[in-house]
Design a protein around this nucleic acid. Structure first.
Lengths: 158, 158
DNA sequence: ACTTTTTAGTTGACCTATCAACTAAATTGT
DNA sequence: ACAATTTAGTTGATAGGTCAACTAAAAAGT
């Protein structure tokens, strides 16, 4: 049981309380480890790289900040991540003619090949994970996450 | 909507897929930021320190590895965390007579004072967070997290 | 036109997390 | 009794996340 990890006095009075954020913490880290191992095995790329690839998409042509909007990644982190991906030959950057601050980003041939190979594998993985949930659970977990996120961003309670 | 953060082709075919782990990632990081700020404001302690305090408990007398069992924290991380907490005067360590490898850990007076001050605040915070969920959602999110964790630890799918 | 502000992205500093190597004490096996 | 293994905890190396300072280009304000 989830509550077992907390001292009774806390858990008993407030069964969902910190336990919930803690549970999210734990599950998150385990899912991350799993995803990273899985990706390492199937295509040898890093989780962050996969996320960025996914946000570019096989035929995409996008920019730094557009990716950031999509996946809400720190811009410094994304900058370094993209540098790595370019170094590995997964992504190519070409200057944007109308705005010299930004660059158009797209997958290289190698990037596309890996993307296309990885996508179905990741789909399988996710189906496997989500398949462990009931319909109700999978619906509820999404709305619960949305609500928790909103609650966490509500500055009144801070 | 949650699925909006992924390319249509991915999201449409597999609505819950990576989106779910990604949502957990996002929500987790926002909850963490929120918790850290909240703790900073209410008692000036770090999130990791709070978690350890919580696992020791106001009257607790425990060991390194017992904490680790409770909160599944990396042992190196916990070692440094405890060192910091001892330096801050939150925790005191005394040698265990029967086993010289381990130490008995408990909260100092200062630690207890902060613990007692922080606990109701954290309860309020958690009630606030959990209060944003419906009964169904809060039940479902727990079982969903349990199942996802088990699925992620299943080595068959790796 | 030119100053101010916003936007795009990079870099550095720092902090946390994870993993592996290591020491020392206790337990188990013979 | 003593060798081998397990358990407890520390430390170091490294990767990833977070924040803030910085440069440069573009847009907006006057």
């Amino acid at each position: 049981m989830s509550t077992a990890i907390y001292p009774p006095e806390f858990g008993e009075q407030t069964p969902l309380q910190d336990v919930l954020t803690w549970r999210i913490h734990q599950v998150h880290s385990r899912l991350n480890v799993h995803a990273a191992k899985f990706l390492e095995k199937t295509s040898g790329i890093a989780l962050a790289h996969w996320r960025v690839m996914l946000s570019i998409g096989a035929e995409g042509d996008t920019t730094h900040s557009e990716i950031r909007r999509k996946i809400a990644m720190d811009k410094g982190q994304l900058s370094r991540c993209l540098r790595g991906m370019i170094a590995e030959g997964l992504v190519m950057a070409t200057g944007d003619e109308t705005d010299q601050r930004q660059q158009r980003l797209s997958l290289t041939k190698k990037g596309k090949r890996i993307f296309k190979k990885t996508l179905p594998e990741m789909r399988k993985r996710q189906s496997y994970l989500v398949g462990s949930l009931s319909k109700t659970e999978s619906k509820a977990i999404f709305s619960a996450l949305d609500k928790l996120e909103m609650a966490a961003q509500n500055h009144e309670f801070l």
